[in-house]
Design a protein around this nucleic acid. Structure first.
Lengths: 207, 207
DNA sequence: GTCTATACATAGATAGAC
DNA sequence: GTCTATCTATGTATAGAC
């Protein structure tokens, strides 16, 4: 490469690529800081420091602190595959236990990434109307799909499908959420097995 | 009552009683404010205002903001009767379902007081080492008592008693916690029935 | 594009009068 | 014991130089 060429195309890193990289660095830093300090104590200064960017630069990429956490949350919500999993099994004659297992497994999977950050986001994220609405919608989608399943599947004997759907959704989501992050962490395979047994048994029991 | 007597005993409200009353007013106000605004936005100024006390007076009763929330949390923890309930049934030959029902019922009962405040306290309370230690101890106490029960009771067939105890404790505590406070609140009797059925079935199933 | 310096807001907490 | 006034700290966000 001659110096002649350098003069014509001096920048090796095109602007947009570099900028996107910085954005990602800030986001990663924010995930780390929020997970460690929580939302309130996870200050923009700390985030900037962790990302090795000045506070001024940080604000060039995000308009405010909430926007950072909102993007992290959006990312996670987009990665949630649990309801799709349920839908995929809707019209197939698989055994109930198998469907439940895939569902539980997917939920566990969604939580492995960064359980601490997840806790912070769910518990302390600023509940903007728009974000809250998205979360609620996703929750109800899951409950709805679950109820559909209960209504169709021949093995299901539980009477009150509506309450059952809510209970199962809460049970799986919450216990996974808690036990994955908890100290003295449970063995994940065991958690999956026991959860599947408990839920499947409940749905199949005739009372 | 003559004015002579009044001069000898002029105060109708002895100091300590009045002070205790003020303390309680501040605490009640704090409960209200925290439940409505959350921990961070539940400022000491707002609490003082709600209690109709000046901010200066508030600090005469509590050394700092955290101390107020800590006392609220302590109050709640002291009111937790779930583990005692379990112990009371330890050596009695009651049917498993009945024991589980009493346990679930107690947990629900503990959450009826002020679900919103409870959520705030559990999710956003400043995790001081001392407080965290108390909570963890209580949790493990509950898991321990549950495990004892599973080990003794003849109806219990689940193999991994340890995992089962943790799963049951989490399931009951968390689902109650969530569903009692959730909008479109579930019927509590139904919640109790379904939860009891799910847990009992799980514990009795031979796989 | 990135930095430093700083404005601005608000919270927790204290001092000192009454 | 209670108040008002105020201090101090800290965090978000912006301005302007380079």
């Amino acid at each position: 490469m001659t110096s002649e060429q350098r003069r014509i195309q001096p920048r090796k890193q095109p602007r947009q690529v570099r900028a996107e990289l910085t954005r990602q660095r800030i986001l990663a830093a924010a995930a780390h800081i929020f997970a460690e300090y929580g939302y309130a104590a996870g200050t923009t200064n700390r985030i900037a420091e962790q990302a090795r960017v000045s506070i001024g630069s940080l604000y060039q990429y995000y308009p405010n602190k909430d926007a950072i956490l909102a993007e992290l949350l959006t990312r996670h919500l987009d990665g949630d595959r649990a309801t799709e999993t349920l839908r995929a099994h809707k019209d197939r004659p698989d055994p109930l236990e198998q469907i439940v297992r895939v569902f539980v497994h997917t939920v566990i999977d969604n939580h492995l990434d960064d359980p601490e950050l997840l806790r912070i986001m769910i518990e302390q994220a600023p509940r903007s109307a728009e974000l809250l609405e998205r979360i609620t919608r996703l929750e109800w989608e899951m409950v709805g799909d679950l109820r559909d399943l209960l209504n169709r599947h021949p093995e299901v004997r539980v009477h009150d499908k509506d309450t059952a759907a809510r209970l199962v959704a809460s049970t799986v989501e919450l216990t996974v959420h808690q036990l994955v992050a908890s100290p003295g962490s449970i063995d994940l395979t065991r958690l999956e097995n026991e959860l599947v047994a408990m839920v499947t048994g409940y749905l199949r029991a005739d009372r």
